[in-house]
Design a protein around this nucleic acid. Structure first.
Ligand code: MN
Ligand code: MN
Ligand code: ZN
Ligand code: ZN
Lengths: 139, 139
DNA sequence: ATCCTAGCTTAGACTTTGTCTAATGAAAGA
DNA sequence: TCTTTCATTAGACAAAGTCTAAGCTAGGAT
């Protein structure tokens, strides 16, 4: 299920131990770590890995189109290995839990022509918010 | 048309010259300045105003619910005086131009029950992207 | 009109997140 | 194995925002 590494191999991209550890950290469903969380996890397996390498590698993976860079809160960016299948996000206002979600139909259809200000609109990304099951209980 | 100041008066909120200048800078449609842009504009009318006051005042206005804090690019936050009417945003990938837009219908309806992961979903915000008329010409 | 006080403003130190640099190290083809 | 090119590293730097402690002021009380 190491899908991300398989995809990365397809590019001419020197595979170093550092890059492998970072890619393995990122692999999985509903994974949306910050650079710092990735560094922390990578350090458990490779204590000498540097912060600069984590940032370099993440930025390269984004440039290759194999991971997504997300900005939800204006604090740290989050990195999403699910770059293959278009999706949106659902975030818990209580604990920050974050899920990949899919809408019924194409969000571009929800923006009528007279609301487009002459733009050629090509993309829409949606952030849904609410309370996860655990946080609903707590409330 | 100084709508924001009118709204701010309704809260118990000491009206200082600094706060008035910041509120006046923010007033208007399709205004989405960064804190730094607001500081720059405020300084034209009140050169001694401090960066800390701009940040303090913006955070208070957000807490009062009279302006919105927006995060698009993971760089600086933007502040939106249009907090009364629900809306979304359309951004030009070329020049960064940003428009308020309205969808046909309620975005919460586009998220089916089996995509909600048990969350109580209360809000959706959409960022549309594309090219503005000027940037389409340039391309 | 003056006083008083809670709360506002200020400069600048500090924090967080991320980028850059220049020296060293190592992957991969010849 | 050798070589070249690209990757890694520590630490300096930068941008955006928060915090602190000292002085100032808006607006109510007298
Ligand atoms: Mn995702
Ligand atoms: Mn807006
Ligand atoms: Zn939660
Ligand atoms: Zn444009």
């Amino acid at each position: 299920m190491s899908d991300l590494i398989t995809r990365l191999r397809r590019h001419q991209w020197r595979m170093t131990p550092q890059r492998r550890v970072i890619a393995e950290t990122l692999d999985g469903a509903h994974v949306h770590y910050t650079a710092d969380e990735i560094l922390e996890r990578a350090c458990e397996r490779m204590p000498e890995i540097s912060r600069a390498t984590v940032y370099n590698t993440l930025n390269e993976m984004v440039a290759l189109g194999e991971i997504l860079e997300l900005n939800f809160d204006g604090r740290s960016k989050r990195y999403d290995p699910n770059a293959e299948h278009d999706h949106h996000h659902l975030i818990c206002d209580g604990c920050g839990a974050m899920k990949d979600v899919h809408t019924v139909g194409d969000p571009l259809d929800w923006l009528p022509g007279d609301e487009r200000h002459g733009f050629a609109v090509t993309e829409a990304s949606i952030t849904f918010r609410g309370l996860c099951p655990e946080c609903q209980q707590a409330a």
